[in-house]
């Protein structure tokens, strides 16, 4: 968004973070104001935003794969239509987010290169396989549910274009979670085999969903700075707790069990307790050792390289057409 409404930092010495402009930036943040693309901003703020928005965008487009895996096999035409629309939305969300990142003076093509070469990451949750139809439900309910908890505060992020993209994303995302819940509700009230399918999916996706909020606060070095900058509004553990509190009653409504014996209401805290999470697996998956890391990247880079001739052809045609117009 606001595509050209930025200048590359090197082109625009006026944007150098002098003490004076940083005062303006700090004042803006202190007043809960929004930073807009051409405002002066600390370079670290800009870099943090680029990294976070790009990672978010990459997650949306890699996230098309696990669910896209079931488009051809959706068990009813209604479900097929819903799933196609949902996976399409994810491409759309990726596009909104890349557009927001581009206002910070980076090019989408470069961000994609960084994804393809492994220099930028995407959410580890998408490195898990979708093994049954119920996984499509579990992703909608749990993964999108966790994403919404993460994303709603981002609608008030200090960086205007990111916040506006997130408003649009969140509006569309609520249908995603509901359709997932509906899939699981139908399965859990269906045949014994369907019910087992639903429980198995929830068993596999519960912990990875909790890990989507990132490492515990004590272990999250960048969080404090991001909170000071208004990029992040709540800590990882606070958001995780909010998700657990929201999800436990929903699981009861579904008639499904969350795979943690430690889940219990705590009168004292006013929250649901849950067992400590072993993050070893998350770090392994981040390192590239998850079940689908290679497959997801191969799929993505394959689509990109297979499409190169098409993108080049369109560019060549546009140049020819423009030349024809100016010759006429």
């Amino acid at each position: 968004m606001y595509g050209n409404d930025f200048g590359a930092p090197s082109d625009d010495p006026g944007r150098e973070a002098t003490t004076q402009v940083l005062d303006v930036f700090d004042e803006l943040l202190a007043g809960d104001g929004r930073v807009e693309p051409r405002d002066a901003m600390p370079e670290a703020y800009r870099k943090t935003l680029i990294r976070q928005i790009a990672q978010h965008a990459h997650s949306e487009i890699i996230g098309m794969q696990p669910e896209g895996n079931w488009i051809s096999r959706a068990p009813s035409l209604r479900r097929k239509a819903i799933l196609m629309a949902k996976v399409q939305d994810e491409a759309g969300h990726g596009l909104y987010l890349y557009a927001a990142a581009e206002t910070l003076g980076v090019d989408r093509a470069d961000l994609l290169d960084q994804l393809h070469s492994g220099r930028q990451k995407y959410s580890s949750i998408f490195n898990y396989p979708t093994l049954s139809w119920a996984d499509v439900g579990a992703i909608g309910w749990l993964v999108d549910g966790a994403a919404i908890v993460n994303q709603v505060p981002l609608c008030r992020c200090s960086y205007g274009p990111y916040a506006r993209a997130m408003v649009r994303v969140c509006k569309e995302e609520s249908f995603h979670q509901r359709q997932g819940f509906e899939i699981l509700h139908t399965l859990s009230h269906g045949t014994p085999a369907q019910r087992a399918m639903a429980q198995d999916a929830v068993d596999r996706y519960w912990l990875p969903s909790l890990m989507m909020f990132g490492p515990p606060d004590d272990d999250s070095p960048n969080s404090a700075q991001s909170m000071a900058w208004g990029i992040k509004r709540f800590s990882n553990d606070d958001l995780r707790q909010r998700f657990v509190d929201m999800t436990v009653p929903q699981a009861e409504a579904l008639g499904l069990t969350l795979p943690d014996d430690g889940i219990a209401w705590s009168e004292q805290r006013g929250h649901y307790d849950y067992s400590p999470i072993d993050f070893t697996e998350l770090f392994e998956v981040i390192k590239g050792n998850g079940p689908c890391n290679e497959q997801r990247m191969a799929h993505r880079t394959g689509a990109h390289s297979d499409g190169a001739w098409v993108r080049e052809a369109a560019t060549a045609y546009a140049a020819k057409a423009a030349a024809r117009v100016s010759a006429a």
Partner: peptide, 13 residues
């Protein structure tokens, strides 16, 4: 109203 941006090879697309 401004809605966002996108990439395309030409105006028609």
């Amino acid at each position: 109203v401004h809605a966002g941006s996108l990439h395309a090879p030409d105006a028609e697309m």
